[in-house]
């Protein structure tokens, strides 16, 4: 399958998807570790992760998918939210928690 299509299916297949280097248990990059920490701090217990270090095609394809050349990348409800700087800012202002609310407490 085409890599862009695979990425699309991944981000729309789970409510919260994080593309990262390493795993939540063993992040391989400080920025990815921070992204995991923020999601946990928001109370998200279940989020899908893709370890781009194990998926070279996705690692390069994801840069074009959201026109975003760095990892981590967070998707909520299939929409690209941002990288670790934006996650940090949105967490500090409470916007991220708000955006995650429908996911955490589905009506």
């Amino acid at each position: 399958m085409d890599v862009q299509k695979r990425i699309h299916e991944t981000v729309t297949g789970s409510p919260v998807v994080l593309f990262m280097k390493g795993t939540p248990q063993f992040p391989q990059c400080g920025f990815s570790a921070k992204a995991v920490q923020i999601l946990k701090a928001c109370g998200v217990k279940d989020f899908a992760t893709v370890n781009v270090l194990m998926e070279p095609e996705i690692r390069s394809g994801i840069k074009d998918y959201a026109n975003w050349p760095t990892i981590p990348q967070l998707y909520i409800g299939g929409e690209f939210v941002g990288g670790s700087d934006i996650m940090t800012e949105m967490y500090e202002t409470g916007e991220l928690q708000k955006q995650l609310e429908p996911v955490l407490n589905p009506a």
Binding site: K63, N67, W68, P69, T70, V81, G83, I86, E89, M90
Partner: peptide, 23 residues
């Protein structure tokens, strides 16, 4: 925020892709 950073990434894309600039 996303569009602002994309603006900067567009300027730096070649340096990021080459690995010259990591983070």
């Amino acid at each position: 925020r996303v569009k602002r950073q994309q603006r900067i990434y567009a300027i730096l894309r070649a340096r990021l892709d080459s690995g010259e600039l990591h983070a």
